[in-house]
Simulated assay, not measured.
Amino acid sequence: MARRVFQLRVTLDDVAPLVWRQVLVPAAYTLDRVHRVIQLAMGWEDCHLHSFEIDGVQYGEPDPDEGLPLLDELDYRLDEVAGPGARMCYVYDFGAWWEHEVAVEDVRAADPLTRYPVCVAGERACPPEDVGGPEGYAEFMTAIGDPAHPRHIAMWDWIGRPYDPAEFHADRVTTLLRRLT
């Protein structure tokens, strides 16, 4: 049987303008690998808890101390839990609650000359880690965009690096994704 790839569109909910990525992922990837693809594609640092919800079932990294009823994402392949047209919810950082819609746009034969996963397209930079969820990100954007804002300098000092919210480079993401294979 020919290898298949899923074309996923990952959209970060509750932020404007829209932050999204389109990635091609091997159908046989387990959900823990899909998690890593999303982390790298979006620009997150993978330092918080996460979960998937697919058809009302929760998947993630079970932690008996947390008490969350999650099925172990290591045990489930993408092609076992989703198909063409499926929609999943991926949540990263339960404190900030970064919710992503993951839509299966297509399932097709893999190109034998292409190394997967691949980032095909996307728009806008991911919010900075630990900015405080969608509300904190909106406040951050207001402050860094207005030099007269009382927290303008403090926000630039906090981030401590250049940050262009409009910047995104699919080829850079693909370079990062190549480290997964």
Rank of each mutant, 00 (worst) to 15 (best):
R3H: 15
A41P: 01
A166P: 02
L8Y: 08
D63S: 04
V5G: 02
D93P: 11
G67M: 11
D93S: 07
R172P: 01
V19F: 07
Y116H: 05
V5F: 02
A28C: 08
E101Y: 01
A170E: 15
S51R: 06
P128Y: 06
F140E: 07
I153W: 11
H149W: 10
P64V: 13
G145F: 13
D46L: 01
W156H: 15
M141F: 14
D111Q: 09
M155W: 08
R36V: 00
A148W: 14
G133V: 11
P17D: 15
L70T: 04
V37L: 00
G95F: 04
Y137C: 12
V57P: 00
Y59Q: 05
D46V: 00
E139C: 10
T30H: 03
Y59R: 05
I54Q: 03
L24I: 06
R21W: 05
G83Q: 09
A110G: 12
R4A: 04
E139K: 10
F94H: 11
D93I: 09
R179K: 13
V34D: 00
A125N: 06
Y92S: 14
C126G: 04
T181I: 14
V57T: 10
Y92I: 14
V118P: 02
A28G: 13
V37W: 00
A166N: 08
P26C: 08
F6V: 10
P112Y: 01
D32L: 01
R87I: 13
E123L: 03
W20Q: 06
E139R: 12
D14S: 10
E101I: 07
E45D: 08
R172L: 12
G95W: 13
G85L: 14
C47L: 10
A103Q: 15
A154E: 15
L78S: 10
F140L: 13
G136T: 08
T11P: 03
L12M: 12
L31W: 01
M88R: 11
S51T: 00
P165D: 14
D32A: 01
R77N: 10
V34S: 00
Y116I: 06
I144G: 07
L176N: 03
C119N: 02
E129M: 05
R3T: 14
E139N: 12
M141L: 15
L113K: 15
E105Q: 15
W44Q: 05
